[in-house]
Design a binder for these strands. Structure first.
Length: 874
RNA sequence: GCGGGCGUGGCGGAAUUGGUAGACGCGCUGGAUUUAGGUUCCAGUGCCGCAAGGCGUGGGGGUUCGAGUCCCUCCGCCCGCACCA
């Protein structure tokens, strides 16, 4: 056995079977044990897994295995986010049914995940495209409908002309569909919505308590919800100038304090007042048309100039009825925020100032910045939007911004216009309700029917699931459910008359908004098993990409609350939060290669010659030169992926696991390189050599500790117990790269300690080897099992508890502290750990190096930080 | 424009509350063993300097006995949001 290299691929299979046979990763609720729910964002079954994907699951697995060893009852499940467009695209392109394509991918990816040796409970596997899953989602939908949390309305929606479907606001990025990349159009459609805005305040406030979430994600969500406090203010319109039936216009403002700085009103081109005014004004009509045509993409917005059109209507100032303001239609006013109308205060808002200067409107300052002289302060081309003292503002003069806000609010709330208060305080949100209707086949059918006499009728529970028809066609664009010859025709559950099924399906983000709850009881007859959910929820450690900072994570936070409010879920801790801790992992990146004909090449198709700036790439098949492109996230489209099967067959899963954890901090990207992989491979073999050769000479397992322990043996024991403690705390903090470095460091210590002999040494060496094997256990579980067996055990290491470190071995009797003179390090001092300040000071002053550095100056002061440092000032 | 993050050797990166900067890995240099089985082991490796010593965490300034860490300011890079009234 000795001196043989470790055949990872062969042995890994063996250990995976051993774990499987004993079913040790199958979870169940156990009272008396602390629980730990570890979850990685479940994958979309798009085809095959590459090394890039494996990093997220490896991190989760290290954490899960570590927690198991620390005595936690761990739930670590896996499933498939299996509905979505790519399956339908495959159906269109390759004439294969979405279900077939999806389930084939699942089979492949399941096998690949298993080859990595993850400690997953496969008995809980779920696929969202299975009726076993989506029937429960339909039930949830119906309960949300009953509660008023799901509703239908006609509105302007984002239409993706490539995918032929509606998109949620969250799915439009820079004016383009998040998946297709197509420029999104605005269409007026009747759609299903989830009332996420009902939870706007709660979703915002609860962010504060999510202290184990990245600050960045919390900020992004807070910005997305976009709460602002302001007022609705009603302006009377001058009857001589206003269209019929338009006696007033209501604006939203966060700065009622600046009302005396108003110089115009502006409304959106889609505002009813704009439409009424345009009715008999062709020029205005044309202007409104142009505003609507203007795109919403970044480029459009940046180049678009502020433009307005004077409607001729005059509005009466709410605090001074002798003062009227012009009403414009302006291209920068959004219909779907606030009321679609604003008052412009040019001195306090840059956009308003640009607008006022362009159209010759006044811009007198109303807020004096601190320290400025009221007599001389003026606004030229920069608006002042911060706090200060009120000026030019009648009864507000001299007040602070805050006082003026309160005063205006008080007066407008008391003032009446047409019998109602002129102004009311109003909290506004940027967040919109979640549009969930999708005009696609491969999604969860919305379980309602449309009856000509009864209207919208929910499908009764007993008729669930509403299953997708298997014989849909995918040969042309559009919704396959809608054009299916028979599927949508049904009878009304209420009156029995003719009715039509809803042919929209749910956004696939609905599927992923509650799967983590379903995992707690994946075979339950109801959507949620309350007891199981109460036991396991919330997820103790969630791991996934930053790209879901808003979409999936916000939806899940909403859905968890909706589950609570529809009576499906009661969380033990009452937080209503799905994920107690969130970690956003970095990606694996790789160089890209482009052939001279423009196409991307896979790393396997390319040979690299030379080094540094002389590096050149050649296409192996043709010998043609290849352009080495930038290092990017591994992705199918760039072809810069390393296939997991090939990697595991060649190096083994442990090398892949070790590599993706090494060097880079887990939240940052790591670059895949052959030399990096080589380092991981070398270390696997090194550990095996240490264990294999060490096993020959260390003490018998279970041998009693010799009564006499020499200095070397004690030193080794100290190193072992320290490493054990450090690695544990690094894994606990998800600082895997640091844990890796600490293991390397310990391997160096162990390597030289193994050359020493003696009964006490042999005992300390066994302890050190066993600790080493346990430390690598979470990261390289196969090698660890093999090593554990080599050390004489016939039990599974995966079931072994993490060893307790001896606190006495964690502190040294003698420590080395730094000695500074005037803040510069001049020497170091070995001294008893318990030495007090006076002893340290005396010892330091005796050092020749200290005296030399003082150059004869008297000592003014000595600062001593016991166990750390001493600084002599002179 | 608004919000956030980051900047440390040739490279990836370490460094509780301010307390020996550069752990660990890669690379490189020299040596030993083996000699083609994707070897292994030992020593060295921030910069300048023969040395003593000096200088060093993007630049400048500050607080402190002491600053990679705290404060101010400037520069560079990255990410998110964006006509939100």
């Amino acid at each position: 056995m000795a001196n043989q290299s470790y055949d990872a691929p062969a042995r890994e299979k063996h250990w995976q079977e051993a774990w499987d046979k004993e079913g040790i990763f199958r979870a169940s609720e156990k009272e008396g044990l602390p629980k730990c729910y570890v979850l990685e964002m479940f994958p979309y079954p798009s085809g095959r897994i590459h090394v890039g994907h494996s990093r997220k699951y490896t991190m989760g697995d290290v954490f899960a295995r570590y927690k198991r060893a620390k005595g936690f009852n761990v739930l670590h499940p896996m499933g498939w986010d299996a509905f979505g467009m790519p399956a339908e695209n495959a159906a269109m392109e390759r004439k294969v049914h979405p279900a077939e394509w999806t389930y084939e991918n699942i089979a492949t990816m399941r096998r690949q995940l298993k080859s990595m040796g993850f400690s997953l409970d496969w008995s809980r596997e779920i696929a969202t495209c299975s009726p076993d899953y989506y029937q429960h989602q339909q039930k949830l939908f119906l309960d949300m409908l009953k509660k008023g949390l799901a509703y239908r309305k006609s509105s302007k929606v984002n239409w993706d002309p490539v995918d032929h479907t509606v998109l949620a606001n969250e799915q439009v990025i820079d004016g383009r569909g998040w998946r297709s990349g197509a420029l999104v159009e605005q269409r007026e459609l009747t759609q299903w919505f989830f009332k996420i805005t009902a939870y706007a305040d709660e979703l915002l406030d609860a962010l504060n308590a999510l202290d184990k979430w990245p600050e960045k994600v919390r900020l992004m969500q807070a910005n997305w919800i976009g709460r602002s406090e302001g007022m609705l203010v009603r302006f009377a319109l001058d009857g001589a100038t206003a269209p019929e039936n338009h006696g007033e216009v209501e604006v939203y403002t966060t700065r009622p304090d600046t009302l005396f700085g108003a110089s115009f009103l502006a409304v959106s081109a889609d505002h009813p007042l704009a439409k009424a005014a345009a009715a008999n004004n062709p020029k205005l009509e044309a202007f409104c048309e142009e505003c609507r045509r203007m795109g919403t993409s970044v480029a459009d917005l940046e180049t678009a100039e502020k433009q307005g059109f004077d409607t001729g209507i005059r509005a009466v100032h709410p605090l001074d009825d002798s003062w009227t303001l012009p009403v414009y239609v302006a291209n920068f006013v959004l219909m779907d925020y606030g009321t679609g109308a604003i008052f412009g205060c040019p001195s306090g808002d840059q956009r308003d100032l640009d607008f006022a200067r362009k159209y010759g409107l006044p811009f007198k300052p109303v807020i004096l910045p601190p320290g400025k002289d009221a007599a001389r302060f003026e606004i030229t081309d920069k608006a002042y939007d911060e706090d200060g003292t009120m000026i030019n503002s009648s009864f507000l003069d001299g007040m602070t911004t805050e006082e003026a806000f309160a005063e205006v609010a008080k007066r407008l709330e008391q003032a009446k216009l047409a019998g109602k208060a002129t102004g009311t305080r109003k909290v506004n949100y940027r967040l919109r309700d979640w549009g969930v209707s999708r005009q696609r086949y491969w999604g969860c059918p919305i379980p309602v029917v449309h009856c000509e006499t009864c209207g919208i009728v929910p499908v009764p529970d007993k008729d669930l699931p509403v299953e997708l028809p298997k014989d849909a066609t995918f040969d042309k664009p559009g919704n396959p459910l809608d054009r299916h010859p028979t599927w949508k025709h049904t009878t009304c559950p209420s009156c029995g008359g003719k009715a039509r099924r809803e042919t929209d399906t749910m956004d696939t983000f609905v599927d992923s908004s509650w799967y983590f709850v379903r995992f707690t009881a994946p075979h339950a007859k109801t959507p949620v098993d309350k007891d199981a959910a109460a036991y396991w929820m919330s997820v103790d450690q969630y791991i996934g990409g930053i790209e879901h900072a808003i979409l999936h994570l916000l939806y899940s936070r909403f859905f968890t609350r909706a589950l609570c409010d529809t009576g499906h879920l009661k969380l033990a801790d009452n937080t209503r939060e799905p994920f107690a801790a969130l970690f956003t992992q970095g990606m694996v990146t790789h160089e890209t290669y482009k052939s001279r004909h423009g196409g991307w090449l896979q790393p396997g198709q390319v040979r690299i010659d030379g080094e540094g700036s002389a590096r050149k790439a050649v296409e192996i098949a043709t010998g043609e030169p290849v352009t080495i492109g930038p290092i990017e996230k591994m992705s199918k489209s760039r072809k810069n992926t390393i296939d997991l099967d090939e990697f595991v067959t060649r190096y083994g899963a442990d090398v892949a696991r070790w590599f993706v954890l090494s060097d880079s901090p887990p939240e940052r990207d790591v670059t895949y390189t052959d030399v990096g992989v080589d380092g991981a491979r070398r270390f696997v073999q090194r550990i095996w050599r240490l264990v294999d050769q060490g096993a020959e000479k260390v003490a018998e397992k279970g041998a009693p500790q010799p009564s006499e322990m020499g200095a070397d043996a004690v030193a080794l024991r100290r190193a072992s117990h320290k490493a054990l403690t450090q690695v544990a705390s690094s894994i606990e903090g998800l600082r895997f790269n640091v844990a890796v470095a600490q293991i390397y460091e310990f391997a160096n210590v162990l390597g030289s300690a193994l050359t020493k002999t003696g009964a006490d040494m042999a005992w300390a060496q066994r302890e050190a080897l066993e600790f080493m094997v346990q430390m690598i256990g979470p990261m390289m579980p196969h090698l660890a099992e093999e090593s554990w067996a080599r050390l004489g055990y016939n039990t599974l290491l995966a079931n072994k508890a993490w060893p307790e470190a001896d606190p006495a071995l964690l502190v040294d009797d003698t420590i080395v502290i730094a000695v500074q003179v005037n803040g510069k390090r001049r020497d170091e001092l070995a001294i008893a750990r318990t030495a007090d300040k006076a002893e340290i000071e005396a010892a330091a002053l005796q050092l020749e190096t200290v005296q030399r550095a003082l150059e004869g100056r008297p000592v003014k002061k000595v600062i001593v930080v016991p166990q750390k440092i001493v600084n002599v000032v002179g």
